[in-house]
Design a protein around this nucleic acid. Sequence first.
DNA 1: CGGTACGTTGAGTCATATCAACCATAGTGG
DNA 2: CCACTATGGTTGATATGACTCAACGTACCG
Lengths: 238, 238
Amino acid sequence: MKNTEINVPLCDKCASETGSIFRHLSAEEIEMLNYQKEYRQYKRGDVLYQEGNRISGFFCIHSGIIKVYKTGLDGKEQIIKFAKTGDIIAYRSVLSNEVACTSAKVIADCKVCFLPSEILVSFIKTNPTYALELMRLACHELGEANSIITDIAQKTVRERLAEILLFLVHDFGLDDQNYLKISLTREELANIVGTATESVIRLLSEFKTDRLVELNGRKIRILDKKGLEKISNILLKA
Amino acid sequence: MKNTEINVPLCDKCASETGSIFRHLSAEEIEMLNYQKEYRQYKRGDVLYQEGNRISGFFCIHSGIIKVYKTGLDGKEQIIKFAKTGDIIAYRSVLSNEVACTSAKVIADCKVCFLPSEILVSFIKTNPTYALELMRLACHELGEANSIITDIAQKTVRERLAEILLFLVHDFGLDDQNYLKISLTREELANIVGTATESVIRLLSEFKTDRLVELNGRKIRILDKKGLEKISNILLKA
DNA sequence: CGGTACGTTGAGTCATATCAACCATAGTGG
DNA sequence: CCACTATGGTTGATATGACTCAACGTACCG
């Protein structure tokens, strides 16, 4: 079942194409990856790992979309981030040597490689460039988390919803008709913003009235990016 | 002015006493630290670095307390964390190679060492144990940030205030009369919780009425830890 | 055809923000 | 020494954003 299966992507090709963290590895190291990885396919709704468990490895996303979330009070999800092609997830718990502080569930069917913890750690010891890149990744995410904290603490739900729509545009893009390429339930949107599902629905329909978006079920068409930026109160960055 | 000054702490002693990240360095590496560090003293209100700037190094706290915060809309501070003896700050921007995403200001007079970026990076290349520990630190903070996001998004201000009081107890301790050792203005408390100053004042005085705390100006005496835990709705951890 | 999950809308409530006034304290300068 | 100012703390009144609860519509599925 392992790498004998058809269509298992090769790590060297994948790393250079997706620009994953593994592009910094040597040919031999890539070969090790290829040998040790376990290729898996998941469908929407499948769970990759769950909060509170110790994980024996991490995931590299080949295709598809995964939501990474924490379960708060009353089981309400708080979506922390999304992972897509080229991203790695669960590396946090591997490196901090803690149990998983999040769960991961499939949003759009995906193909991923599962890699044992040791390989992540051993490369750190043998390949400083890669170690630094990994560090950079973790520290970058830390910076993003800090921004999210400030946003949730200080912005209104309306501002945050507009901001998140723009964030989704930036991360997943629009198709040729300006529809967001990622499709989420209203509840999932609420769980990113940190609000109630009903509030998202009401605000989205306000945005629709104001001709900022168009709604077709789960598909959201972005009509006025500038308008959303204005609402979202994005601070200008250097 | 550098290390010729009196009372400059020696890194080897400091590292082992404070349990800082540098305890994983070799004797020679510690010696390098000692040689390259710049010892500085700051008073309450002093700013160590500011958001948006590129920083040429990072800080290791020898004594005192520093608040690390982001400036949001209308200049309102969102306090991200506190740093005290043994902690390092600003390493995030050094490692991610980004400008500072936070500012740092002194809460309680402090003595710190400033270390040039290169030294942090060069040790990563030469000392894998240290690299891993640094990675662990960053990943641990990432996990904490994720929890904070979920908390702010899902808990009420009342719950969060109780939680933060407990967090301050845990991190800074109580004196022999159960007074919190860290002393913050009401506004600073509000900027951790992510609320208005007036709300903190009102809630604190409710807590006082409920015999959970006692207030003497900026000094807060913790009377009923269990009670605060109950209010804070802390999830049980493994 | 019933079941389940998702989406929508309305009504009512409450927590929290906002605005404003006032007090206490400490530092400043004439 | 006193007026002056700035900063922080407190309280009250008021406004409102956002949540909750409840009902109902829709779509898909076995």
